[in-house]
Nucleic acid binder design. Structure first.
Lengths: 162, 162
DNA sequence: TTATTATGTCAACAACGCTGACATAAATAG
DNA sequence: CTATTTATGTCAGCGTTGTTGACATAATAA
C-alpha cells in the first residue's frame, strides 16, 4: 500500500463518478419508457410489470418470496398482485407442504403479456449490447452488481443466474 | 453476412438480456436508497434531488433547460423547484439577454445539501468502480449510454462530458 | 395449547408523474 | 406598432405506488 499510486485511479475522480450517476439516471428513465407505455394501455403501472416479471422468472414463488426479492411492503404488493390475479394474469395455488402459502404462476394470458413487455425492453437492451460489445456488457454487469447493496447481492446473484 | 455465425453472439441470448434488465432494476433500486433517506429527513423526495443535482451541475440553467434534460412536465418541475426556491436551496435571477428566463443557481445551503446527497452515492459508486476495475467501468458507461433513447443521446453526452 | 408464520385487509398519507386550462410578461415577427 | 410566440407560472384534479399502523385468519411449529 502507498507504494505506487496507479494513474488508473483517475477513473475514480468526481467527474467519473458523476458520469455513472447521470448515465444510470438517464438510462433507467428511458429503459422503463417502452413497457410503461404498454402497461398504461392495460391500466397497469410499473409495479405490475415487476410482479409479472418476477413471477414469470420464478414460477411457484410465494408472496413472501416476492416481498424479499422486491423489498416492498406486503400492502404495496398486495394491491398490484390482487389486481393481476383478479384480471387473470396470475394464478394462485395453495402450497403443498405448507398450505398457508400461495404459489404464484403466470397464466397463459400473463405469459403473453409478459412476453410483450419483455420484447419492448429486449430490443433496447439487445441493441445496446450489440453496439457496446461483449466485453463492455461484462463490465456493465459487474459494475451494476457491485452497486447493489452488499446484503442483497446473494439474492440478486441467485436471481440472475437462473 | 450469413458467412460465419460468431459464437460471441451468445451474449445476446434471452438469458443475458434478462440479466441486464434485472441488474438494472436492483442496482437502481439500491442506488437511490441512500439519498432517499437523507431527503426524507428534510421533507424532500427523489424529484428534489434531481433538480438539486442538475442545477448544481449546470449553473445558470433555465427552467426550460431543466425540462428538456429531465423530460418531465413543467407542472411537475414547478412543484419541486418552487419548494427548493422557497426553502432557500435554489436561487433565481432574471436572464440578462432574455428577462423572461429564470437563471437557476444553488445557494450555499443548496450546495451543502447537494454535497451531502452526492457523498451518499459517491461511496457506493466508487466502491463498485474500484471492485470492478477501469475496463468494466468503461463498459458500464458504454452500455448505459446505448440504452438511452437515441434522440436523447446528444443531450446526455453534452451533460456527462461537462 | 400456545406462539409464530404466511397471508390478507382496511385506512390513510405522501411523492411525483400526468392532463387541461388559464395568465402574464417579454421577445420577436410581420 | 400590433400580433404572435415564447418562457414561465398557477390552479385543480387524478392515478400509481410507495409508506405506516392496526387488525384478522388459518396453518404450522414449539
Amino acid at each position: 500500500m502507498q507504494r505506487k499510486i496507479p494513474q488508473s485511479n483517475l477513473y475514480l475522480r468526481e467527474e467519473e463518478l458523476r458520469r455513472g450517476i447521470e448515465l444510470l439516471y438517464f438510462a433507467y428513465r428511458d429503459f422503463t419508457r417502452d413497457p410503461d407505455k404498454i402497461l398504461a394501455e392495460s391500466g397497469f403501472g410499473r409495479a405490475h410489470h415487476r410482479v409479472l416479471y418476477f413471477v414469470g422468472r420464478n414460477p411457484a414463488t410465494t408472496v413472501s418470496g416476492l416481498l424479499k426479492l422486491l423489498r416492498i411492503t406486503k400492502q404495496s404488493l398486495s394491491r398490484v398482485l390482487g389486481q393481476l390475479v383478479e384480471d387473470g394474469y396470475i394464478d394462485q395455488q395453495p402450497g403443498t407442504t405448507d398450505r398457508r402459502q400461495r404459489l404464484l404462476h403466470l397464466t397463459e394470458k400473463g405469459r403473453d403479456f409478459e412476453k410483450q413487455l419483455f420484447a419492448s425492453q429486449r430490443e433496447r437492451v439487445a441493441r445496446a449490447y450489440k453496439t457496446a460489445g461483449p466485453d463492455a456488457v461484462a463490465g456493465f454487469w459487474e459494475v451494476l452488481l457491485n452497486i447493489v447493496d452488499e446484503s442483497e447481492r446473494e439474492i440478486v446473484l441467485r436471481q440472475i443466474e437462473k
